[in-house]
Design a protein around this nucleic acid. Structure first.
Lengths: 158, 158
DNA sequence: TGGTTATTGTTGGGGCACCCAATGAAACGG
DNA sequence: CCGTTTCATTGGGTGCCCCAACAATAACCA
């Protein structure tokens, strides 16, 4: 009797032949592609001591100006619990300031600092490079197609 | 002085206006879309008491026949550690059998059971329905485009 | 006006996917 | 025969996601 693998797959190739139905599903492909994207971006940002969510929040703060944690969370679909930790870290590194909002004392006004802007410039470049590598197999036109398609299925209701 | 949020966003809309650079990056869109896909599929499979990875493994076992855990892991990009737990669960529910391979005593020959096939029929339908909902905003042609594009960036080197 | 409802930041707990390192048993290869 | 590789397994760890509760505060409305 053969070994269980000798009947299937090509022993000559590194990657076994896999006609899996699963691997043709959008949900599966999205998971794999997202995992690779996260890996590429996270590794790139790590050289600046930043993590993906931290970079995302810093970028959003830079664009939105003084903004509450709740709105940041809604904008980036980040859980309030996680937002607390992220802003804590960014504040500890003096990349953002957290000021009580005099008009609504429940809110914190999160604002980017000068050091935050410097850090953001570098991490933004790293993030863009990682995304270029992620989509390196696509032409510029295909890259735009992908972005357009993803935008339509990523956040239904927006 | 205004409240931190009154200067930005449209208080009339539920979703705040967000011109975030981040949200246009493939890596970010992939993360959001993958999260939504996972939520849809996981929720659907939960009605059958199955989780996503379990369904994926069961489906791969059905297609590959008697197969080792290592090859399953390579096919689906699942960590060996996680594979042990998944196969344990599937075996406990009697959806697969785990037989020592007489030809290579390191390997387990994983094979789907009759009950496994019945379960798979249902979960496959649920998974397909969830994927249809995930891509409901796309035309059939766009759905194929998306799958083609994702396939090219999901697993580089294959 | 006053009482209810909603929002904000925070803390706590938990789940799932992903990743790496190490181990003993077994197979492989020169 | 001996070093290298593979396999299943155990262990530890990270990141993103989700829900529930809470006190302080604001907004709503009858």
């Amino acid at each position: 009797m053969d070994s269980v693998e000798s009947r299937y797959g090509d022993p000559m190739s590194d990657i076994p032949y896999a006609p899996s139905r699963i691997r043709a599903l959008p949900s599966w492909l999205l998971g794999r592609a997202a995992a690779r994207g996260h890996r590429l971006v996270a590794d790139a940002l790590a050289s600046e001591g930043m993590r993906m969510m931290h970079h995302a929040v810093l970028s959003a703060v830079a664009e939105l100006g003084p903004v509450s944690q709740a709105e940041l969370g809604r904008t980036l679909s980040i859980d309030p619990k996680d937002m607390v930790a992220i802003v804590n870290d960014l504040q500890k590194d003096e990349l953002v300031t957290r000021t009580p909002d005099p008009k609504d004392r429940r809110k914190n006004a999160i604002e980017i600092s000068a050091e935050g802007r410097r850090r953001l410039r570098r991490t933004q470049r790293l993030g863009d490079e990682a995304n270029a590598e992620l989509t390196a197999a696509l032409s510029a036109e295909e890259r735009e197609q992908l972005i357009a398609l993803l935008t339509r299925i990523a956040l239904p209701g927006e």
